[in-house]
């Protein structure tokens, strides 16, 4: 266990720096916490559950967005330094901490809750949902909001207003839920340039997702639905609704 690894960590101290600088550390495994606990208490990053489910600790490792608690350092060549930077395409608060307010805003904009108006009538019993109906959206409900997909998507860097993979996948998660009736309301939000159609299908979001959510798939399915709606409204006198 006495293996030595070299980390290069991007530091950004807003009081002193105008942009991030790189510092090198020689550390053991569980490297960032080792640095924080033993070497430099001022190194700043978010983390909590250390089991890949709270979504706090996403960072760039050698240029790739990674959930740092879920990647063994043995994946890396000990002879080479590992470069740790904050998630890209986000504003940096400090060191490895990014500002995630825009992400939260995008998430709430897609109305990620069950929309239906007959809840009162059925209050006492559960809605039935067959295993197949559950499977229809289950994959899209697995998102831990780690934002790796935003850091993989160059559209986020080019057009910060783009809703982005996780938010659209979440909208799709509710659209595909047999208990939900809010598809049209959500389409009104997402069928905009900075909504669905910002996506140019790089597909990187799906590749970096640590939970196999497949946001790229969610977006393409959504585009299909939107295009179908549009065609229907064009061709059929009674429109798409």
């Amino acid at each position: 266990m006495a293996e030595t690894l070299r980390l290069e960590v991007s530091r950004y101290r807003p009081e002193e720096d105008s942009e991030p600088t790189l510092q090198s550390y020689d550390v053991l495994l569980d490297a960032l916490n080792h640095v924080k606990n033993e070497i430099d208490g001022s190194l700043t990053f978010r983390w909590s559950c250390r089991m890949g489910v709270c979504g706090s600790c996403g960072m760039m490792a050698n240029g790739e967005p990674k959930l740092t608690c879920a990647v063994p350092l043995t994946d890396y060549d000990p002879a080479q330094p590992i470069r740790i930077e904050p998630l890209q395409f986000f504003p940096v608060v400090r060191d490895l901490v990014i500002d995630m307010s825009s992400f939260l805003e995008k998430l709430s904009n897609v109305k990620p809750w069950i929309i239906r108006d007959d809840v009162e009538a059925t209050e006492a019993v559960e809605f039935k949902q067959t295993p197949a109906e559950l499977d229809a959206y289950k994959q899209f409900s697995m998102c831990i909001n780690c934002m790796l997909c935003y850091s993989a998507c160059p559209v986020i860097g080019l057009e910060p207003e783009f809703s982005g993979p996780a938010a659209i996948a979440l909208a799709q998660r509710y659209n595909l839920d047999s208990r939900d009736k809010g598809k049209e309301e959500r389409m009104d939000v997402l069928d905009a340039h900075e909504g669905l159609w910002g996506c140019t299908y790089f597909g990187e979001c799906t590749k970096v997702c640590p939970k196999n959510v497949d946001p790229a798939g969610a977006i393409q399915l959504y585009k299909m639905a939107s295009a179908t709606d549009y065609l229907k409204s064009l061709l059929l006198p009674w429109g798409s609704k």
Partner: peptide
């Protein structure tokens, strides 16, 4: 609404013109 904390000096990393060559 969600917005950054007031008074933060955020660093906005610039997007390189050559971003598409980086990956």
């Amino acid at each position: 609404a969600h917005e950054p904390a007031a008074g933060l000096k955020l660093y906005h990393p610039p997007m390189s013109l050559w971003w598409w060559l980086e990956r």
